[in-house]
Write a protein that binds this DNA or RNA. Structure first.
Length: 482
RNA sequence: GUCCCCAUCGUCUAGACGGCCUAGGACACCGCGCUUUCAAUGCGGCAACACGGGUUCGAAUCCCGUUGGGGACGCCA
């Protein structure tokens, strides 16, 4: 156990499958992964599913899916705590035999009562447990007679302190700690026990987890001591909060990692964004590859203050990654997105040209099936705002058919010819070209904003351009002026 | 209520030994340029050391207090 392996860094991500992988958990996993990779160590996945009521198989799958999407491959596991119950029991027995724990025969609701009282009583110290005073003889006899009991850790007097790699020295008075349960009366071990037992067992060298565990750490340290095991390094990560500075929750919208996948974010962008939440390389760099991140990551760069999860910057990262991606990859992603949205894409030949036009304008993959839908299907609507802005001139009713027939006669239909035709029509009519251009943009894309109009014509092709002009003509005729 | 922790622009943050900080970068936002709209891009702008005391020749950086925020106090994890 010790010896040859003692230098290898071993970290773990230990989610409980009572929900999907949320951004906070993902960030924790990410930092663990980065730390392991940086040190050439192992990243272990452990599922903490000792809460049988709330845990589910489905959630486990969801968590694995999220980790895979983010590209956080684990080196060992997943280990399931629900399959190691015997192990924890023997760990607890050992503590019990040593006299560092005792059987508690109280009913569970007795403690519930006491708990409801304590904000009123505001006791200095934790409530005492009379079962701690039971003699070994009594205790054993009652246990053997079949009376149900829990096993509680006997918190020793004095103080407990430790050095956290991000928060520094943490110290508490042990008397504020209640004798906590190790094994419930139904025989199922609790979190504090399993986490310590497993971390010892799996040779975890660095416990990197959310700061919500900071005040639980002293209890666990007591357990390490009782077990006679050396302490791992602890590094608690500041929490991720919602824009209202409250703990991130469903109220804040999407908190599940897979929701971001579905909204069209790229895993690399999300990865990069997450890596900068609570950590900084120390300089101004922000666009960082996994490789760079791995090289740069260190616990020293982790800040202490909680971070607000603001999606605007994620959007920016995403658009940057989208822009830098290869056309082939983008094409595949676009096709996947269109398929998922039930859009049948026409003319796959000019797809790459369309990608080129669109890539600097999209912020999310879903933009392909929403605002830029008209680049892939004829089944699109005119954006009401665009109509209001660009189709209001009644003369358009005459100009659009003219343009339609001009393009119909234009055999070349090149970038140059299409532009020349439109501009000369504008000249003859004595109007600004922009007026026509904007209207035609609505005709071709349904939107008020799009890539350069004549380039759009090229990627759509002559026939489609003509058809769409005709469609606009009909639309203008059928719409009563206002 | 008790204990623990945190505190730089709206947001993410840089800011090792206190002086290089009239506090830097990025996102967002606002102008201007480019332009057929948008995006991209270039330039410029707005905007922070929570507050109060110390220590010091000198503090965003150290100490104390206040305020604010978060977390933990379960036979949940």
């Amino acid at each position: 156990m010790t010896g040859i392996m003692h230098k290898e860094v071993r970290v773990r991500f230990a989610p409980s499958p009572t929900g999907y992988l949320h951004v906070g958990g993902a960030r924790t996993a990410l930092f663990n992964w980065l730390f392991a990779r940086h040190h050439g160590g192992k990243f272990i996945l452990r599922i903490e599913d000792t809460d049988f009521v709330r845990s589910s198989e489905e959630m486990v799958e969801g968590i694995l899916e999220g980790l895979r999407w983010l590209g956080l491959a684990w080196d060992e596991g997943p280990y399931f705590q629900s399959r190691r119950l015997e192990h924890y029991r023997s760990f607890a027995d050992r503590i019990l035999k040593q006299g560092n724990a005792y059987r508690c025969f109280c009913k569970t609701d007795e403690h519930a009562d006491r708990k409801s009282e304590y904000p009123v009583n505001a006791p200095e110290d934790a409530v005492a447990h009379e079962c701690a005073e039971l003699t070994g003889e009594d205790s054993r006899r009652r246990a053997e007679s079949g009376e149900p009991f829990a096993i509680r850790f006997k918190v020793p007097p004095d103080k407990t302190s430790f050095h956290d790699r991000v928060f520094g020295k943490i110290e508490i008075e042990n008397k504020i700690l209640e004798d906590f349960v190790l094994i419930r009366s139904d025989g199922i071990p609790t979190y504090h026990l399993v986490v310590v037992a497993d971390d010892i067992d799996m040779g975890i060298t660095h416990v990197i987890r959310g700061a919500d565990h900071l005040s639980n750490t002293p209890k666990q340290i007591l357990l390490y001591r009782a077990a006679g095991s050396p302490l791992p390094d602890f590094a608690h990560l500041p929490l991720i909060l919602g824009p209202d500075k409250q703990r991130l929750s469903k109220r804040h919208g999407a908190t599940s990692v897979m929701a971001y996948a579905e909204m069209g974010y790229l895993p690399d962008a999300f990865f990069n964004f997450l890596s900068l939440l609570g950590w900084s390389p120390g300089d101004d760099r922000e666009m960082l590859t996994r490789r760079e991140l791995t090289q740069l990551f260190s616990l020293e760069g982790v800040g202490k203050a909680d971070a607000v999860f603001g999606p605007e910057k994620l959007d920016w990262f995403n658009s940057r990654y989208l822009r830098d991606i290869s056309t082939e990859t983008l094409r595949e992603l676009a096709l996947k997105e269109l398929e998922a949205s039930g859009i049948e894409c026409f003319e796959t030949e000019s797809l790459d040209a369309r990608m080129e036009l669109l890539k600097v304008r999209i912020r999310k993959l879903t933009d392909f099936s929403t605002i830029f839908k008209a680049f892939f299907t004829d089944d699109f609507d005119y954006d009401p705002a665009a109509c209001k802005k660009f189709l209001k001139d009644p003369k358009l009713q005459a100009w659009i058919p003219k343009l339609h027939s001009l393009y119909n006669e234009d055999r070349e239909f090149t970038l140059e010819s299409t532009e020349a035709i439109l501009r000369s029509l504008a000249d003859r009519e004595g109007i600004k070209a922009g007026l026509l251009i904007n209207a035609v943009r609505v005709a071709l894309t349904g939107q008020g904003v799009a890539p350069g109009l004549f380039e759009v014509m090229q990627v759509l092709g002559r026939q489609r351009t003509i058809d769409r002009l005709e469609r606009l003509g009909k639309y203008l005729n059928s719409t009563p002026e206002d």
